[in-house]
Design a protein around this nucleic acid. Sequence first.
DNA 1: GATTGTGGTAATCGAATGATTACTTAACTC
DNA 2: GAGTTAAGTAATCATTCGATTACCACAATC
Lengths: 228, 228
Amino acid sequence: MSSVVKKIAEAPATTRIPAAERRELILQAATAVFAERGYAGATTDQVAKAAGISQPYVVRMFGTKEALFLEAFDRALGTVLGEFRAVIADYDAGRLADKVATLDPAQGTRRQDHLKYLIAVTYADLIADRGILMMLMQSFVTGHEPVIGPRARDGFLTMFRLIRDEAGMDADSARDFLAQGMLMNTLISLRLPDVYDEDASAEELLECTLKAKLNMVLDTSRAQSRVS
Amino acid sequence: MSSVVKKIAEAPATTRIPAAERRELILQAATAVFAERGYAGATTDQVAKAAGISQPYVVRMFGTKEALFLEAFDRALGTVLGEFRAVIADYDAGRLADKVATLDPAQGTRRQDHLKYLIAVTYADLIADRGILMMLMQSFVTGHEPVIGPRARDGFLTMFRLIRDEAGMDADSARDFLAQGMLMNTLISLRLPDVYDEDASAEELLECTLKAKLNMVLDTSRAQSRVS
DNA sequence: GATTGTGGTAATCGAATGATTACTTAACTC
DNA sequence: GAGTTAAGTAATCATTCGATTACCACAATC
């Protein structure tokens, strides 16, 4: 019977995965691809290959490339906002008392001073998954797109308001915080860690920008460079 | 005679322009288009239309889209570096003594403190031509491209070294300066000035980031939005 | 064990795009 | 004013890409 032959031949066939789970995998792949190449530069086929499925399936599951980008953006932004809110909640619940005790009093002793430091560390930690920050950065330079642009502006302002209102920072501190964040985003998008060993000034800039997080960033960048 | 008829009919024909001059026009158009849409998102035909010529002429004059992008990038970077060096030279020659006299001594009195302020103002002035800073930003998020990426990294590091070595800033000050610059770039690329009137937090963020330059930025953004 | 819904893919299509070719004509030179 | 050079375009080509269509097969249900 041909059915028997078929069964044997197709034994190591593609494992089927529930749609909801596959969706997650595609979104992860899309985040990495869009982060690297931007909205216009990425193709649905690259996303499909990264997710290990066919290109039509990607399109059918999300409708359009634009819709996929928007979901990946929401996902990345949601992760950042979630982490920020978590650290604020932890601080206000006194769960970070030990960490706060190690801070230099010269940096300030108010709640907003403490949170400024804690959120900055949280942000730097997010570099571990290079895709998230680069995905945001790619969205921010796509302000001209009629659908993506407004969403990107809205997302950025949501971050600003969270820092100002929920963390209680004054506008200037919030601005400085965002500025440091945009610098980190830029250095990562530039792939500056790739030339860390070859250029002394790249080394110095990365060191004074990322400080304690540097080794982590170099490790993950090297790991992700090998793949892509 | 048909020649007479032709002459009349073709009287308002296209004015021919020397190649060198046309090159300039194309580069200006390319800077605006690439700044808006990025390397992958821009087309050579959009550049051609913006420059008022045909698409094949653009390609023939620069060889490839990539070569055109690289020239536009060099041009934008060169403008920024040139302005920075000019203000440093002016300061060291004492030509900015009156401007320096108005500074708040609390901000610092060393050469690097003065230059930090003066260069920051110079950078903010560059926003007047929105294309330059957006062109740079688009290049910075194209770090993955094999030819553009290395040039973008090199350009960024050149800026860093200029600020550190020629302006004499310490690494941390240089980092803070670049951070503020990347924030400005991001706000402009996001087109945040477009929603200035509609969102109170956008207004606050733009005001505390751009301060005295705000009105200029709003004016030029509105003017350039009408066109594009 | 037929049915049916769900998880996929192969094939293909039309539009967009970078690049090439071949051609035209204005402007300068002698 | 004939000849040559330089400025510029129309037409077209080969790819690429997002999207569509039509189909296949595994697994749960009855």
